[in-house]
C-alpha cells in the first residue's frame, strides 16, 4: 500500500527529507550530483555560498548528538543560513510540554526549516505532518526508522570510489535491528541499483523477516564479506549486552569484529565505511579503522556537502508559488 509521499510538494519537488523510502533513482542521483559541486565549496578560502541567506534553520535535537548536529550546523552556515541549536533532552517534553507545543513555539519564531533528531521512529514524519506549510523538515535520525542524510553521504562515498552501483556487492555488518542508518542505507543501495546488499549479524541483531528489506542475510562474517566491494560496519552499543542480545563484547569481536585478517575475504580493493562513533576493538580493529581502506573520515567531510544539497533543495522547492 503506498501512501501519498509527504516528502514532495505539489510540483513533485523535494519538500521534506524524512526517509529514502518513496524516492526514485533520479532524485537520489540528482542529490549525489549536486553534492559533487558542493564538495568544492569546503576547499575554498571563502567557504560560504549565499543560497540560504536570511533563512532560519533550527536544529531540533531530542537525542544527544555531536557529529550529526555539527555537520548540519556547518552545512547550514556554509549556505549562509542562520542556525538555532536546540538540544531538548528527552525529559523536557516528558515534563509537560508536548512535542506539538514545542513545535508551535519555534514556528512562532519564524523558523524556515527543522532538522530533527528524536528517539521515536516516525517522529520526523509527525513533525512534517504538523508543521506549518512553509516549513521544511529534514530527518537527522528518528528512532530505529531512518537517517537518510547519513545514507546519502555513504552513497556519495561509495560512488566516489566505485563509480556505478550496478555490479557492486555491499555488506552491512552489525546491529541492523536497532539501526536507522542501516535501514536507510539498504533502501538507498537498492534504489540506486546495487547488485547485492548483504547484512551480517547474529539473529538477535536482525529484524524479523530481514529479507523483506531487500537483503541477503548472513550470520558468518567471512562468508558474508566474501568478494564484496564495500563493507559498512555499524557501531555496537553497550546496552545490547544488558538486554540479553549478546553475551559479551569479547565474543562479538571474535565473531563479527572486522580485522585486517578477515578483510582478506573481501575484494582486494574493497573499502570499509562506518557511520561513527567507532568502538575500536568491538566492531572494528584499529588497524582497519586507520588503514588505507578506511573511508571513515572522508564520510564525515562528504556529509557536509550532502546536507548542503538536501537543505538547499528543500528550501529551494518553496519557490514563488508557496511564499
Amino acid at each position: 500500500m503506498s501512501m501519498p509521499n509527504i516528502q514532495l510538494n505539489a510540483e513533485g519537488r523535494l519538500k521534506h527529507f524524512l526517509t529514502i523510502d518513496g524516492f526514485g533513482r533520479e532524485l537520489l542521483t540528482q542529490i549525489l550530483d549536486a553534492a559533487e559541486s558542493f564538495t568544492g565549496v569546503s576547499e575554498r578560502t571563502v567557504k560560504t555560498v549565499p543560497l540560504l541567506r536570511g533563512k532560519v534553520i533550527c536544529n531540533l535535537f531530542f537525542e544527544t548528538s555531536t557529529r550529526t548536529r555539527t555537520a548540519f550546523e556547518v552545512a547550514a552556515k556554509r549556505l549562509s543560513a542562520d542556525v538555532l541549536n536546540l538540544n531538548i533532552g528527552t525529559s523536557a517534553t516528558t515534563k509537560g510540554e508536548t512535542l506539538l507545543d514545542t513545535l508551535r513555539n519555534l514556528e512562532a519564531m519564524h523558523v524556515d526549516m527543522f532538522v530533527v533528531r528524536h528517539q521515536d521512529s516516525g517522529a520526523a514524519h509527525f513533525i512534517a505532518r504538523h508543521a506549518a506549510p512553509h516549513v521544511n523538515v529534514i530527518n537527522a535520525g528518528d528512532g530505529r526508522h531512518a537517517h537518510p542524510t547519513q545514507a546519502m553521504l555513504d552513497m556519495f562515498t561509495i560512488r566516489r570510489h566505485k563509480g556505478e552501483f550496478t555490479g557492486l556487492r555491499v555488506a552491512i555488518v552489525g546491529d541492523i535491528l536497532h539501526s536507522r542508518v542501516a535501514r536507510s542505507q539498504i533502501l538507498a543501495l537498492n534504489t540506486l541499483g546495487t547488485s547485492e546488499v548483504r547484512v551480517i549479524a547474529p539473529r538477535t541483531l536482525l529484524p524479523t523477516d530481514a529479507r523483506t528489506l531487500g537483503v541477503h542475510v548472513f550470520h558468518d562474517l567471512e562468508q558474508g564479506i566474501r568478494d564484496v566491494d564495500v563493507i559498512i560496519v555499524l557501531p555496537l552499543q553497550k546496552e545490547r549486552m544488558q538486554s540479553a542480545l549478546l553475551p559479551s563484547e569479547h565474543e562479538y569481536f571474535r565473531l563479527y569484529g572486522l580485522t585486517e585478517e578477515r578483510l582478506k575475504a573481501a575484494k582486494k580493493d574493497a573499502i570499509v565505511m562506518h557511520p561513527g562513533p567507532i568502538n575500536r576493538g568491538v566492531e572494528l580493529d584499529s588497524e582497519v579503522a586507520d588503514g588505507p581502506r578506511s573511508m571513515i573520515l572522508q564520510q564525515v567531510s562528504f556529509g557536509i556537502a550532502i546536507r548542503m544539497v538536501v537543505m538547499s533543495m528543500a528550501i529551494g522547492s518553496q519557490g514563488a508559488a508557496t511564499r
Binding site: D21, G122, G143, A146, P207, D209, T212
Partner: peptide, 9 residues
C-alpha cells in the same frame, strides 16, 4: 513483522 522491520518500530 515486515512493516515493523521497515519502519523501525
Amino acid at each position: 513483522g515486515p512493516v515493523a522491520s521497515r519502519l523501525g518500530l
